[in-house]
Simulated scan of single mutants.
Amino acid sequence: MLRRLYDWTMRLAERPSAELWLFVISFVESSIFLVPAEVLFLPMAIANPRKVWRYGLIAALGSILGGVAGWMIGYYAFEAIAKPILEFYGKLDDFETLKSAVSLELVMLFLFTSGVAHLPPLKVVTILSGVLQVNLLVFFLAAVVARGGKFMLLSWLFARYGSPIRDFIERRLNMIAGSAAVALILAYFLYLALKH
């Protein structure tokens, strides 16, 4: 199933309506969809490097607004919408574990790590933020920094280095982003240890 979704997303990059699809996938990825927006962003940026900043802005805007939608699903419609989505992806147990174990500070950290490196999955964190009633303005600003920052960084890399950067991004950026996320989590736990 995952391979079919990936192939479908790659075909979207070739269509004239690719920008609309980039927005839609970026939006739904933040709340309900499995395929990350980067899968569509990368081939679009390679195909038309002059529009890379435009693509980055479209993806960032879709992702930020999708995150707000995820927050609203968690806040207003957990039982009706969020729970079946999490069950569908097999993430309900992870969600319940996170919900019972996290503090507001840790949720804020997860907003950044999931926005940058999908650790934990972005849709889980956006819904969790709504369920835990994280302040919507604070949530929005965190999404702007994490998701907006990620797509602007990708746009800058393409604008600066062109399509040769694709191999680096596809092979190493998730590892680098994941390492940064792990470093943030370790820094948080160190902060907690020093605080007590």
Rank of each mutant, 00 (worst) to 15 (best):
L2C: 04
R3Y: 13
R3E: 15
R3Q: 14
R4I: 14
L5M: 07
L5N: 10
D7R: 03
W8E: 13
W8Y: 14
T9D: 12
T9S: 15
R11M: 10
L12G: 08
E14Y: 10
E14D: 10
R15Y: 04
S17D: 11
S17T: 11
E19T: 04
E19F: 08
L20I: 14
F23R: 11
F27Y: 07
V28P: 02
E29P: 00
E29A: 01
S30R: 08
I32T: 01
F33E: 03
A37V: 05
L40G: 02
L40T: 01
L40M: 09
L42Q: 05
L42W: 12
P43V: 14
P43T: 12
M44L: 12
M44A: 05
A45K: 07
A45I: 00
I46M: 15
I46C: 15
A47H: 14
A47G: 14
P49W: 03
W53L: 01
W53E: 01
R54N: 00
Y55K: 03
I58A: 01
A59C: 04
L61M: 07
G62Y: 01
V68N: 03
W71A: 04
W71I: 06
I73E: 04
Y75H: 12
Y75C: 15
Y76C: 06
Y76V: 06
A77W: 13
A80C: 02
I81C: 08
I81R: 13
I81M: 15
A82L: 09
A82C: 10
K83Y: 13
L86K: 06
E87Y: 09
Y89A: 10
Y89M: 06
D93F: 12
E96D: 10
T97F: 09
K99T: 02
S100A: 13
S100I: 06
S103F: 11
L104D: 02
L109I: 11
L111V: 05
F112S: 09
P120W: 04
V124Y: 12
T126F: 06
L128A: 11
S129P: 11
G130F: 13
G130A: 07
L132S: 03
L132Q: 07
N135R: 08
L136D: 05
L136E: 03
L137S: 06
F139Q: 02
L141Q: 07
L141T: 07
A143Q: 14
A143R: 15
V144Q: 05
V144R: 08
A146T: 07
A146C: 09
A146R: 08
G148Y: 15
K150Y: 02
F151H: 03
M152S: 03
M152Y: 11
M152W: 09
L154V: 00
S155N: 00
Y161P: 00
G162T: 04
G162S: 06
G162W: 09
S163A: 12
P164W: 09
P164I: 07
I165P: 00
R166E: 15
F168G: 02
I169W: 05
E170K: 14
R171S: 03
R172G: 01
N174H: 13
M175D: 03
G178I: 06
A180Y: 04
A180P: 01
A180V: 15
L184F: 13
L184I: 12
I185S: 05
L186H: 04
A187G: 12
A187E: 06
Y188A: 12
L190Q: 08
Y191G: 01
L192E: 09
A193N: 08
A193Y: 11
L194G: 13
L194Y: 10
